[in-house]
Structure formats: structure tokens, C-alpha cells
């Protein structure tokens, strides 16, 4: 099993912004149950700003910790600001993740982007974005430059 730092453990043991949301303005669902992680992000947007955000995650401790941290990082931000959040930002905010868990932070970034995309589609009167359960898992250990183990 991976060795997690204190921040990751803290976020995993006491995650923020957990649970479904009634009548959200945008929903994004990414990941693949085959690979053992699925993340669903709910947004409430007021005046182009993320007023509230919730997540539901099926996954390991890193997936839950990154879900919590990513939602905290974009809550209160504008849509444009939220779109700038990268998996690296999330991993850094958590003080680093074991290399084999980097894909979990990628899922958080993708989940928020998918929820924003869904929000924009709804504003344009388009049907909601369907859940995106990737056929391929991104459980690859990053080759270089992504080493964040402390």
C-alpha cells in the first residue's frame, strides 16, 4: 500500500464538500469503475462564480483526498479560475502524492472540468453531459517529472 503524508491522511479522514447536491447547475462524472475510481462533481454557480461544490468518489484514499482538496481549491472561485486548476496544483496542495497515485489528482482536475463543461452546456440549452467512464484507466506511473513522493 502507498505511504501517504499527513496532509493526505487528514484530507482522507476528514474530507470536505462530501455528498450529492440538490438541483446542481453542473455535474461531471469521470473515471472508470473497472479501475477502482470514479469521481462525480456537483456545481452551484452564481454570477460565474462557484458558490458551492460537492463530490462523490468511489476510490482509494488518494482519490478521496484529492477530491476533497480540489473542491476546496475552487470553491468561491470564478469559472475561469477553476479551469486553471491542474492536477499538479492539487498534488502540491496535498504536499505530494506517491507516484502511482498521481492519476487520482488527474481525476480531480478532469472531474471539475467536466462539471464546468456540463454547466456551460446547460446554459446553452444543450442536454447534460453524460458520465465519462473512460475505457482506459490512467493508472500509469508517470515517467518523469511527476515524482512527488516526499
Amino acid at each position: 500500500m502507498s505511504m501517504y503524508n499527513e496532509k493526505v491522511i487528514q484530507a482522507f479522514m476528514s474530507p470536505k464538500n462530501v455528498g450529492a447536491m440538490e438541483n446542481p447547475d453542473g455535474v461531471g462524472e469521470v473515471g472508470n469503475p473497472r479501475c477502482g475510481d470514479v469521481m462525480k462533481i456537483y456545481l452551484r454557480v452564481r454570477d460565474d462564480r462557484i458558490e458551492d461544490i460537492r463530490f462523490e468518489t468511489f476510490g482509494c484514499a488518494a482519490a478521496i483526498a484529492t477530491s476533497s482538496t480540489a473542491t476546496e481549491m475552487v470553491k468561491g472561485r470564478t469559472i475561469e479560475e477553476a479551469l486553471k486548476l491542474t492536477n499538479r496544483d492539487v498534488a502540491e496542495a496535498l504536499g505530494g502524492l506517491p507516484p502511482e497515485k498521481i492519476h487520482c489528482s488527474l481525476l480531480a482536475e478532469e472531474g471539475i472540468r467536466a462539471a464546468i463543461e456540463d454547466y456551460r452546456r446547460r446554459r446553452q440549452g444543450l442536454p447534460p453531459l453524460p458520465p465519462r467512464h473512460d475505457a482506459v484507466c490512467h493508472h500509469e506511473i508517470p515517467e518523469t517529472g511527476e515524482e512527488t513522493r516526499e
Binding site: 500500500m1 502507498s2 501517504y4 491522511i9 482522507f12 479522514m13 479501475c35 477502482g36 475510481d37 468511489f58 476510490g59 482509494c60 484514499a61 488518494a62 482519490a63 478521496i64 502511482e100 484507466c137 493508472h139
Partner: peptide, 29 residues
């Protein structure tokens, strides 16, 4: 509906040592 590694860590913090065959504990895909 839940994943094994998360369960193991929560159990560990409650003082119980268990194991799982989830991908996240086996270190494989």
C-alpha cells in the same frame, strides 16, 4: 460501492489490521 484501500486505511486508523485485493493495494492496474 466502496474501494478496498480506503477501507483498510480507515480500519488501520481504528486499530484494525486487514488486507484487500483491490488494485490500489496490489500496486497493479
Amino acid at each position: 460501492y466502496i474501494e478496498g484501500e480506503a477501507m483498510l486505511l480507515r480500519l488501520d486508523f481504528a486499530g484494525i489490521g486487514a488486507s484487500s485485493g483491490s488494485a490500489c493495494t496490489s500496486g497493479s492496474l
